[in-house]
Design a protein around this nucleic acid. Structure first.
Lengths: 204, 204
DNA sequence: ACACAAGTTGCGTGACGCGCACCTAGTGCG
DNA sequence: CGCACTAGGTGCGCGTCACGCAACTTGTGT
């Protein structure tokens, strides 16, 4: 994988990326779902302490900048699952890994609500989740000993997991939501993740 | 629901929408994944026989226009499931409904490949699939007698179905793909859709 | 210490999204 | 049968954005 330790350049780069992303999300929340168009690129860049041109070097759209945190978090899904002990059943490993990943900082309700209630941003968040599916599928394949090229199970399960997390987030935001995000997430994931791959019988 | 029969206006509207969408996809295929930026809005509008302004009345981005067919198709997912006999087990009903919906015209490999291999378009197709989740979840809830507001099962399953269809499409496009799209789709869906909701025991 | 690589910035350009006002065609009523 | 009404299509114009280009600044390797 990529080196976990970054040199100065890489850390500065990540730092600016987070600064821009954070500023973008903050401004978006301030203006609300209906005032998204009023958040100018120039404002985001200025708030982050960089030029508008630099903003463009990092992100190609406002939505991408606002959802940068979601994207970075989703990118860690694969390694989160790999970090679980190999003898753990698939469903327990997935649930534990995702809960750990998505509750390290308890999700920001304001930010999440802003994103989910704005079509433009919701679409971008969707892309972010989907980005995680590839690595997740590989991790699942490695854990279950299935071949991603032949067997649909890893990729389908990864997609189902991403979908479950998405649904859990949406449900958690609703006013009548009961319990912590971890609880909702567990409930959602347990709907779709089997303890083991389905089809050893129908061997070729 | 919406009326299945449209008056003249609605049909003309749908007709122009399809004309624009078809022209957009055709031009996109001609230019290939790397030449997407060269497909001007003006070209699409002209090819469809409308003005650029009208194009904007229907779609707010090239990607949305190119994926119009995907969006329209996904929008029918809910009613496709409802059309299955009520006594059919959930998994069989879902598989039959989705196969019927997605193989009425056998998917266009060129178009699908173009969309899936272009990040911009793939993201839009993702949004299209997600649009179907709401109606799908309602149909599942109606069929299984669960309450969408309390139980996560319908929404999570709907998301899993959408993900499975997506994965099936991607897998079907790969060179080493074996069998018809219907077969791949069946395999993908059977990974995640249970015959019945999981938790009748823990009744309240 | 020096040369190279990477990141940031200002400028200029072409395209796009959208509001506004006008025109044309489908619809419903007396 | 004709008339007002509504909805969709069009031309125009403005503000914003994405990106190529050519500098300048800062971290890296030898």
């Amino acid at each position: 994988m990529h080196d976990d330790v970054m040199d100065l350049r890489a850390r500065n780069k990540q730092s600016t990326r987070e600064a821009i992303g954070h500023a973008a999300l903050r401004l978006a929340i301030e203006h609300g779902p209906h005032g998204l168009a009023l958040v100018r690129v120039h404002d985001i860049a200025t708030a982050a302490g960089v030029s508008a041109r630099t903003y463009n070097n990092y992100f190609s759209s406002r939505a991408e900048a606002i959802c940068a945190f979601q994207a970075d978090q989703a990118a860690r899904a694969g390694q989160a699952l790999r970090a679980r002990p190999a003898d753990e059943p698939l469903d327990q490993a997935v649930i534990a890994a995702m809960i750990e990943l998505y509750t390290d900082p308890e999700p920001d309700k304001a930010g999440l609500s802003m994103i989910m209630s704005t079509p433009e941003l919701a679409g971008e968040a969707l892309k972010a989740f989907t980005m995680a599916e590839g690595p997740l599928a590989e991790a699942i394949a490695a854990r279950t000993g299935t071949d991603p090229a032949r067997d649909l199970f890893p990729a389908v399960t990864a997609a189902a997991i991403a979908g479950a997390i998405r649904v859990a987030g949406r449900h958690w935001l609703e006013p009548g939501s009961t319990g912590s995000f971890a609880a909702v997430l567990r409930g959602a994931l347990s709907c779709v993740v089997p303890a083991a791959p389905p089809a050893p019988p129908q061997d070729r």
